[in-house]
Design a binder for these strands. Structure first.
Lengths: 198, 198, 198, 198
DNA sequence: CATGAATGAGTCTTCATTCAT
DNA sequence: GATGAATGAAGACTCATTCAT
């Protein structure tokens, strides 16, 4: 009577998980919907009960992962005092997260950027929230008087993100398998302290 | 006098120019070879006399632009003294170049990243040279004792590139049309001086 | 007292009514079973408790409407004397019926004819009965000596039907909304009296 | 040198011929584009160099056949004197034409009517020209005073067409293979002389 | 009886690439 | 070298139908 509850409950999630793997290994355009379906153990048509199109799967994947990421990032910051500690934690968290799931990382660092249309969509939604979060932390430090106020916080936030993003992309494209999180202190240090010796 | 050979002879260039436009507006996967051919005013088949495949066109486009970019970047640096001046010039030049041809910028910031395979190819070739150039400049400053030595120059080079690249991507995706080059001093200043007030 | 059983019990009819509308507006191939189900306010699967297939719905629709039509046509004729009066009444009734339900008319004049297989099925069943009815009336007139006997009654019956059918099809396809029944006297007059002036 | 001129010159026609056969035997919706291609001995893709879509093939088939039909019908009438002779010839020609190519006949009598949208397209184009031609002949007879003027020529033209069309449809659906043209005199006689004995 | 989530077979169409001229 | 007509492989998506509940 309580039968058939084995793998369902979330076909949608099964599909997303499968999609992450397939997108990562084949790329968005190289990925076949039927392959995603097979890997998710559902019929091809079932995909379309949960997603309007192949593109929507990618979008949903992004939205889901990014939402979780942001949520957890906020959680991480909640327990910390001080702008510097928080920025350092952000770098650590960002790189650890990306480094914790290579498939998803590939999707995020490479596949998600496959078209201007898609990138715009990405930039203007949750990514924008993430940038705002960084900017907030920077703003905090500025307010506390420990960080420079001459430069616009929004541009600096983008710079910080750019550094992390480049580390992530390099890691994804590199064949050596170093722990991505290890770079976090370097990035924080450089970003906060600057290049100049003193 | 090697007269009037322009227009012909340069079919290869015509094709590349056309490709830049089409890739920029439609994306790599959205671009049709026949559209590139039409815009270049050659027959579809002619494309294949100059390029092995559609993907090769993109690769060639990248190689050409990147080679020119590197060459000119080196030229820019040649006349300058001092690591800081050179790094600042690099930032300026990078952003000005990207900002000077929106089509090419779209191709570089978005389309070129459409697949892991392609990005790897990109990273390990000319992009690597560019990073080396940055790294060199940083190394110089380190040798001169004006810049910190605790952090690895290669990672810092990537961070610098990451900042510039993020500025460029933001500009491409933004609909406001600010002059991208204006951000160069901000980036240099932040990168060199760091976030910390002193 | 066999009370209130309307609304339920008549799922079959609900479905047929819904099907008439959907077939009429989308065509047989354009119609979606799920749309018929939605319009009939039953689940998709329920359709298959009443009909074996989508095609069977169309067949049933035809059978039902045609049976009612024939029955009523026979009723109309029952009260009349004289072949001419009966033939005139037939024309009037045919066109009025078609003209009274545009959805059903579209189904009959257009959708029902979507395939040879289906048309054969239609022709050899109830439509054949209708032609026989016409033929009977013509045979009557021939027996009474008022109508020509040189021409075969069956062919003439088809000609009569062809005229009416063409009027009906024209009306369905026309966007002007004239009362179709008004054409009945013209058709009867022409069919009986012929084109020739006398 | 004069090679490869074997079957080409008209791939378009090859395709149309193949389409007529396939549409006739499978119906429009049952017909597979790849089957048409195979029968026309061209690649699937080649179809789309000549026609925008499967539907366009049907439309083209209709347009071609109907244009030829009309042209020849006009030719037939050109040599004749007298409205009656011309009307009789029209009936003869119509039925002979339909009867001369069963595949095309099936397409015309059945498949072409598969959707309201398509039928409207058919009715308002060349079919309208054909009706006008019939109407003209009838108008002639009216002007000559040999035919009744009380009834509108346009309605009578439709009636005439309706008779012929019904004969054609019956023939297509019938499995007996009588010569369709033999019915022409019956139809003409009935249409002109009417049902009434005199 | 009724449901509606799941199925998966089935096909039109696109487009990079080739090759006879 | 140049052409562009022809190729044909390949795949996203739809939807009639089923069946476990």
């Amino acid at each position: 009577m309580a039968a058939k509850r084995n793998g369902e409950g979330d076909k949608r999630e099964q599909i997303l998980r499968a999609a992450a793997t397939v997108f990562a290994s084949k790329g968005f355009f190289g990925a076949r919907v039927s392959e995603i379906a097979a890997k998710a153990k559902v019929a091809d048509g079932t995909i379309y009960l949960y997603f309007k199109s192949k593109e929507e799967i990618l979008a949903a994947l992004f939205a889901l992962a990014m939402t979780q990421f942001l949520e957890r990032a906020r959680g991480e910051l909640a327990t910390l005092e001080g702008a510097q500690a928080r920025l350092e934690r952000l770098a650590q968290f960002h790189l650890e997260q990306v480094g914790s799931n290579r498939d998803l990382a590939i999707v995020f660092q490479v596949e998600l950027r496959h078209s201007q249309k898609f990138m715009e969509r990405v930039s203007t939604t949750i990514l924008a929230d993430y940038l705002k979060l960084i900017q907030q932390v920077i703003g905090e430090g500025q307010a506390q008087g420990v960080w420079r106020k001459e430069l616009p916080a929004s541009t600096m936030a983008k710079c910080f993100f750019g550094m992390l993003d480049e580390m992530a992309t390099n890691w994804v494209l590199s064949h050596r398998q170093y722990p991505l999180g290890d770079l976090a202190p370097v990035v924080s240090d450089l970003f906060i302290g600057g290049l100049r010796a003193r």
